[in-house]
Nucleic acid binder design. Structure first.
Length: 314
DNA sequence: ATCGTCCAGATCTGAAGCCA
DNA sequence: TGGCTTCAGATCTGGACGAT
């Protein structure tokens, strides 16, 4: 450990990342199945090797220093690369279907993913990693190499922000489509008989808000709700269940596949007065080579999009 | 090439003490 | 009182080396 950076133990990176996550050496040690003094010593050794303080110790736990935060960012990237190298070892001599993507909570994307997975070859090894998160985290995760692909969903009001953000992170993007958000509600909703609903009619109903749809969180900006009755919910199926069971509810969303609308007895409606345009981008690292599985997924993504794109604005 | 032994270094645990 | 550090002693691990 005393030979400088070359002999740094990457296991210690894992320790440091866990300490940062738990904000406690005791908790981190417990999670890592090791003794607390040992972890404390390992962190100290790592700090000595680097010549920086990674954490500030307080009676309420440990907190990363400015330099420590910078180090932890690098450490996380290295751990991701190590994980990828290890997965190469696992799949050696065997065909393994590897695929990873970070996605927003759009139902047409969820639909596409389940369709894609259902067509995998189940006699071969499968290593699929799908995570739902907000668009800012999706960009960071793809830039860090945690996911090979990402789908970013944002309002066109933030177009320039995302263009700059992707350029800063050296990521490539491809527009999947540009569309207007629609209202989705129970077919029994009292206003469901109107094909183009007025803003005034919406104000008396209960709005279900899917928080991560309204990214970016930049400056805390999100779509302004007209309704004083709001329910914020993250879980997709629960949102549809609620829309189905309480006819006085509605939700803004990207177009929902017909199959799901039928299953939950829901309908789409427009609200020209309030609707705004959104864009979904497929993102990946500059120079990333698409695997056969990636291409298969992209085909599925476009056909899922085509099946719901009855209202499209390019 | 394989096996057994030795040994240094790494890692572990528990106890004691420090600090806010 | 809770959380972290330091210390001493025990245990584990892996490399070196000789015997077969």
């Amino acid at each position: 450990m005393s030979e400088g950076c070359i002999s740094m133990n990457t296991l210690y990176f894992k320790y440091a990342v866990e300490v940062e996550r738990t904000r406690s050496i005791t908790k981190a040690a417990s999670n890592l199945y090791m003794a607390q003094p040992n972890l404390s010593k390992a962190i100290k050794e790592l700090e000595d090797t680097l010549g920086i303080d990674i954490f500030e110790r307080t009676s309420k736990g440990v907190f990363p220093t400015v330099k420590g935060r910078e180090f932890l960012e690098y450490a996380k990237k290295i751990l991701i690369q190590i994980e990828k190298m290890e997965s190469l070892k696992i799949s050696r001599n065997r065909i393994c279907q590897n695929f990873s993507i970070a996605v927003p909570g759009s139902s047409y994307i969820s639909f596409c993913i389940s369709d894609f997975i259902s067509e995998l070859n189940f006699s071969q090894d499968i290593n699929i990693n799908v995570e739902r998160m907000n668009s800012v985290d999706i960009v960071n995760s793809v830039a860090d190499g945690k996911y090979n692909l990402g789908i970013v969903h944002y309002s066109l009001d933030y177009e320039s922000y995302f263009t700059d953000f992707l350029r800063d992170k050296n990521l490539c993007s491809e527009t999947v489509w540009t569309f207007e958000h629609l209202l989705v509600m129970s077919e029994k909703n009292p206003i469901a008989e109107d094909s183009d609903i007025s803003a005034e009619k919406l104000s008396g109903l209960i709005e279900i808000i899917q928080d991560d749809m309204y990214v970016p969180y930049i400056n805390g900006i999100s779509r302004k709700s007209l309704s004083s009755k709001r329910i914020t919910m993250h879980e997709r199926d629960s949102q549809f269940e609620l829309l189905c069971r309480i006819p006085d509810t509605f939700m803004w969303t990207s177009p929902v596949p017909e199959d799901i609308l039928r299953r939950f007895k829901l309908v789409h409606r427009k609200c020209s007065q309030l609707s705004s345009k959104y864009r979904d981008l497929l993102i990946f690292q500059n120079g990333y080579k698409f695997s056969e599985l990636d291409r298969k997924f992209v085909d599925k993504l476009y056909s899922a999009k085509n099946s719901v794109s009855f209202v499209e604005y390019m």
